[in-house]
Design a protein around this nucleic acid. Structure first.
Lengths: 127, 127
DNA sequence: GTATTTGCAAAAGCTTTGCTGCAAC
DNA sequence: GTTGCAGCAAAGCTTTTGCAAATAC
């Protein structure tokens, strides 16, 4: 494991929000200004492959780019507000049951699941 | 409603698989060779806006492009096989309950939901 | 006749690739 | 010393934009 990869992993795991490749690069450059954007993409590809990082689209709220987050111990759902752009996370045992149903009824072995809902958050729904 | 838009809507609704913008364009050109790719994108933007069409990523199995499908009467989940690339659709009352839970507990008004699972289908899981 | 839609060309955005040199072990 | 990783520049793909001409009603 190289120094730069360790740095990127650290940034993803410590992120307080969902970051895209450019944002990750930007944050990494504060620590190591020589780090190239291509290295970000190559590291992300590796981490996705090992299942350490999940790739999100967040309902394309801000164009076609992808967002990344360290894989959590428990899967969660992303709720994207189409008005204010806020992202909420939601965990539910129903979601766990749903995954179990898919595995059983379709004999489909799930490796990653992505649930994204677009709509209006509590603050924006009345407006 | 213009002729070209009607044609594109017809193609999306009659599609036997999930199509990306290029595939839609290609099919539309068989009928009207003057139809421009930009018109495809503009029509899709309109249809997404009206909630008549859903945009999918299918777990980025084939890069960052988007796939489109006419909105069904009932939401469904997409299961993308990481090995053979097959796409299955899955409906479940648990999914409906999960949506209800989100609406209630977070007071989040859902407009579109996308559930995509990547993994191994029955045929590929043993291999 | 007015408003909206289309084609064309070009730009924009994000991501990937080829190759050479550098770093890790 | 061998193997794999990083930097650089350039290409690749999908999608969006600006503007003049064409179409719809």
């Amino acid at each position: 494991m190289t120094r730069q990869r360790r740095l990127l992993i650290q940034i993803i795991q410590g992120a307080d929000r969902h970051m895209d490749a450019f944002a990750l690069w930007d944050r990494a450059r504060n620590v190591d200004p020589t780090l190239n954007k291509v290295t970000v993409y190559r590291t992300l590809a590796m981490l996705k492959n090992y299942g350490l990082v999940d790739e999100l689209d967040l309902m394309h709220l801000r164009g076609g780019k992808h967002y990344y987050e360290a894989r959590a111990t428990r899967d969660h759902i992303h709720l994207a507000c189409l008005k204010c752009g806020s992202i909420q996370e939601f965990e539910s045992s129903l979601f766990e049951k749903l995954k179990g149903q898919i595995e059983r009824e379709r004999r489909f072995s799930i490796r990653t699941v992505r649930v994204e809902a677009g709509g209006y958050c509590d603050k924006c729904r009345g407006q």
